[in-house]
Design a protein around this nucleic acid. Structure first.
Lengths: 184, 184, 184, 184
DNA sequence: TATGAATGAGCCTTCATTCAT
DNA sequence: CATGAATGAAGGCTCATTCAT
């Protein structure tokens, strides 16, 4: 009689909501960093806060889901035989400029099982391509995938504090400096 | 509308409080970065919130005070004729391990007058020593003081997210990678 | 970083809370004027601060809700053909004695959209009735609705500073004085 | 040895400080109303907070002192045989535009002894001049000094909420309306 | 299961007031 | 008696998280 519930599309909306949440989170995290309010994510997704918590019990698992896609992109690229480190870093840089959180995430919560998996996948991607560069003598074997991840993490850590207008330049220059390191 | 004060050690506590606040802030900023709650600083210093605001009207002025000493140390080192980049970075690294905020600060809010001055002093210090390395042919002239600051900022950005136990190793490895970049 | 919740009556408490907030605000604003602490409103309503802010994002929207009823009352009265200025002022006086904030609100922040609308509605109400008095020659055409609002605002401004016991007398005498002004 | 006290001109500074405080308070109250922060008064007076509290144990006594001068002005005017109500109100209006607090004060804290005295002096001033108007038949004997004080208080109550640019007009119009009340 | 309101802790900031020197 | 720092209690606002429906 007095239950002005708005709408409840029922359980069937589950997967749809999940996708909406991830999409919203990608945007929100991209704009405000991984520390952006979760409520904003739910709101942009047009989903109740409760649903957000049901799908993603904590911030990390949401972030993880968000960056899953990005990693898939990277994995796809790495799978291609012609992929080189330059191309990979290029793609990562582009992703970073869109959503800084990607790499921010990879260093955080290593202890956490899911976090470890993301980290593992990133390392795998980097490792595959790196191997090729080693083989071609273009990158020193002294340089490990861990090193690459460290450098990328550092870059990601600095971007949220960088004025939007300068981010592109910072990313470019950082990659140049990194490359100087890589040469064998 | 309130007066149940508990204790008031009097103005003589002023300088002591100031020092306690700076010390507390060094710890808190060191643990959590420059964004850590100011209330935590007051609490750890055993000082009223009001006193914190009297001594340091905003976060920046507190950060400045905290890192003032550090910068003086760097300036002292740079002033010595035998100082080389390795030594300087070594000192910065040590400072970073204690308090990540120093470099975090140098990248933030260049517009702000005080922040700009910190940034300026850092660049000056780096520039002085860098010049010598250029002259000695040990560092490529392609590498600028800005580049050094960028790399250090990236490193600083990543440390607060790194587990305490791994920070030392991360700093070490990062510096090694940086050096590979510098060689001419 | 905190979760020791105490109780959560669920969303069903929503409308009830809203009503409790408005009722509490009517009291608090009535006692202390529109500048009274919002936290006091939440407390008296027995509602979390967060809920208050959810229902009423800012002080103005709360005030608006509080005085919405009152204005409707006035509009209803003005709509009746027999309504005269005496009756209207009588009603306003009675409302004022309950909650001073109504008129306080009408003078504040005309720039603000919602505030302007309240002001507009008050002026409309006053204008309608005033017109009739003009026509009947009972009030000088020199006297405008703006004048009425000014006088009422002045009265409202003084009430929060008047001891409760004297408010009634002050209102009565003020209206008498006003009427002397109105005569043509 | 380590007592960097700044300056303490000793007891002789007493009366001087008192005067400085009153002057500062006149400015501060004039700008921000009687609710302005007391610390601002002490600061502008160039006097310690403690001294402020020594001279004026509470806000009211400071306000009282501040408006003592103003009242003297009014008393002087009233003492002159040619003074009429128009002139007196004119002067009060001018004082109000400079410092709203004057009349704000007269209604507050009637219970308080000092407040009562200010109120008494205001009533006396108004009474003296009013008497003359009564005698000349220019003001209805129905209008009392209390009425005048009430109207002025109302006006004072509304001014702090009025945008600076409109205050003059509001005062003018209010006085016009008041005069309509006074006529016998 | 989805919804979205409720909750309350926490941080920031401002001030009135006290008190050692 | 002056000084000015110290204190801590408001009050404002935001957000993570829970939970009745």
């Amino acid at each position: 009689m007095s239950t002005p519930a708005k709408a409840n599309r029922g359980p069937s909306a589950g997967p749809e909501n999940r996708r909406a949440l991830i999409a919203a989170a990608r945007e929100i995290f991209g704009e405000g960093g991984v520390d952006a309010p979760l409520s904003a994510v739910a709101k942009r997704a047009g989903v109740g806060q409760g649903s957000l918590y049901r799908h993603f019990p904590d911030r990390a698992s949401l972030a993880l889901a968000v960056f899953g896609d990005a990693i898939v992109e990277l994995e796809d690229l790495a799978a291609s035989p012609e992929a080189d480190l330059a191309g990979l870093l290029e793609l990562i840089a582009r992703q970073m400029l869109v959503s800084v959180g990607l790499i921010q995430l990879t260093l955080t919560d290593t202890a956490d099982a899911q976090g470890a998996s993301v980290r593992g996948r990133m390392l795998a991607v980097l490792g595959v391509v790196l191997e090729r560069e080693w083989a071609g003598g273009r990158v020193d074997r002294e340089i490990s995938a861990d090193d690459l991840l460290l450098l990328l993490s550092m870059l990601a850590g600095v971007l949220p504090r960088t004025p939007l207008g300068e981010r592109e330049a910072v990313v470019r220059r950082a990659l140049e400096l990194f490359w100087r390191s890589f040469a064998s």
